[in-house]
Design a protein around this nucleic acid. Structure first.
Length: 486
RNA sequence: CGGGGUGUGGCCUAGUCUGGUAAGGCGCAUCGUUCGGGACGAUGAGAUCAGCGGUUCGAAUCCGCUCACCCCGACCA
């Protein structure tokens, strides 16, 4: 709102010139979100919220197929609950918003606006779980959370954000680990199949893991500027929380046991990654799987009224048949705005496929297809429209994913000495290098290069490797992926 | 939270230094001419100049405080 950009002609900043400026402009012009009166909190507008609804629809089905049930827990968490798990409290303390005054008086005990719901949920789990027959317990909630971040950014880091948080309880740690890995796979599936984004996934280091977790797995997206966006996490909580919240069950040997837990979440931040990776100089590009609309039909005005009637009729006919075939389609027959203006508007909004119908098309019984991802244009005979639409949308989806893979590949390098490491860090690369696992090395690397460990990639977890730590030279077993975090 | 910058109709800005009662473009409304990649003319609506307080005959402009946003850093899923 306060940027000094000339939007008067709606000319976008080039993505490659200034990614941050471009990003803000796209969020604005594509009508995804706008700033609000509340510090760090945005108003998500219809176009942005539609994307979030898609995320919800897709993941919700996946969760339920696995027996996860949706619940809703209170926004307000009594402070004493949050205090119970020490690491958890320490991790979240700096970013808590606390209610101390309500109902006209000062509260005896303050409430915390949930930054995440482990504590309030697990307090209750202890009442719900008595027997091994009560396990596994698998619940999820779609909600908002509050984290008072110092520096905010639309979608990518907002004070209040929307997410889902899954929480499960298991008899054995193995089950819990499997669950955390399963959730990680769901997220990977979601990003690849729907958002057409190819992430890195793997284990987080001790430093980077969730406050209170035993191990954390993460999904990391490769942003074209060389930064890494943590796009979802799943946690094996071990029995850390069950011990603190006294969640116990009797196993079939009548022995009292502490169960093992997981939690996992994906937030509106995912939409930020989508914008940053797929967008181009003309604006947003939405993958057909989540785009709404997927197709826009544009009428091109003809020379006279009778021509226009024909064009209109033809456009409506094609609109109906696409709709009948379950495509998300919109008809833009606004005759007041110029064609160029309308085209640009739909491009900024990222609609994957544009179909144009004018005099020429009506006469020759065909339509013009224009792809948003590569601007390719072609003429399609009327009887092939449905089939070609299906193919084209699939092709766009596929192309976007392969572009994301290419970005990932191009920005990742393997490095085996610290001189190189520093050079590649300067060049804003994702770096794969041996690290001994020592916290000191990790901290020094961060100080000197700004890079942190992102993940130990899944496919390297069980790989037998050996080499000198890129920092201290001591023997290391695994190559970690380093990058600057967003 | 530290450093820097910004805030003027829905949007982008000029005006602020040097105080005199808000200007332009975009968008919007109506009409007409246009229309195959961001058209044009005419007419019109729309602003207590981020908020609060102060100085002054008079404040968008000077002073103080507050709030929000942007950039860089620290912190953080």
């Amino acid at each position: 709102m306060t940027q000094k950009n000339d939007f008067s002609k709606n000319r976008l900043t080039k993505k490659s010139d200034n990614l941050s400026k471009w990003y803000h402009e796209v969020v604005n012009l594509a009508d995804l979100a706008t700033t609000s009166e509340v510090k760090g909190s945005m108003i998500i507008k219809a176009n942005g919220y539609a994307l979030w609804e898609k995320v919800q629809q897709i993941l919700d089905v996946k969760f339920k197929e696995d027996g996860v049930k949706n619940y809703y827990f209170p926004l307000l968490i009594p402070y004493h609950l949050l205090k119970k798990e020490k690491e958890h409290l320490e991790g979240f303390s700096p970013e808590l918003a606390v209610v101390t005054y309500a109902g006209g008086e000062k509260l005896k005990e303050p409430y915390v606006l949930r930054p995440t719901s482990e504590t309030i949920m697990y307090r209750t789990f202890s009442d719900w779980i008595q027997s091994y027959r009560d396990l596994p317990l698998k619940i999820n909630q779609w909600c908002n959370v509050i984290r008072w971040e110092k520096r905010t950014y639309p979608f990518l880091r907002t004070t209040e954000f929307l997410w889902q948080e899954g929480h499960t309880v298991h008899q054995t740690e193995k089950e819990a680990v499997d669950m955390a890995l399963k959730a990680l796979k769901w997220y990977q599936w979601f990003y690849e199949e729907y958002f057409a984004l190819s992430p890195y996934l793997g284990l987080k280091s001790e430093q980077e893991k969730f406050a209170g977790a035993k191990t954390t797995y993460g999904i990391e997206l490769v942003i074209p500027n060389g930064k890494s966006l943590q796009a979802a996490t799943t946690h094996n909580l071990g029995d850390n929380f069950s011990k603190v919240f006294e969640i116990t069950f009797l196993n079939n040997q009548r022995k009292k046991c502490y169960p093992f837990q997981t939690s996992w979440g994906l937030s509106t931040r995912s939409i930020g990654g989508l914008i940053l990776i797929h967008g181009d100089d003309a604006g947003l590009i939405l993958p057909p799987q989540v785009a709404d609309p997927q197709v826009v039909i544009l009428t091109v005005k003809g020379k006279n009224k009778s021509q226009n009637n024909k064009i209109q009729a033809q456009a409506e006919k094609i609109y109906s048949s696409l709709k009948e075939n379950q495509f998300r389609v919109i008809l833009d027959d606004d005759s007041k705005l110029s064609l160029g203006y309308r085209i640009n508007e739909w491009e900024i909004k990222g609609v994957p496929l544009r179909i144009e119908i004018g005099e020429k098309e009506v006469q020759e019984n065909k339509v013009k297809f224009a792809r948003r991802d590569n601007f390719e244009k072609s003429f399609i005979p009327e009887h092939k429209i449905i089939e070609t639409t299906r193919e084209t949308l699939a092709a766009i989806q596929k192309n976007l994913l392969s572009q994301s893979k290419k970005i990932k590949k191009d920005l990742t390098v393997n490095v085996d000495n610290y001189e190189d490491f520093k050079k590649q860090a300067q060049a804003k690369k994702f770096i794969r290098a041996f690290w001994c696992g020592n916290k000191n090395c990790e901290e020094k690397i961060k100080e000197e290069t700004k890079l942190t460990t992102r993940v130990l990639e899944m496919d390297r977890l069980n790989k037998k490797e050996s080499g000198p730590c890129v920092y201290c030279g001591k023997k290391a077993q695994q190559k970690w992926l380093f990058a600057q975090s967003y």
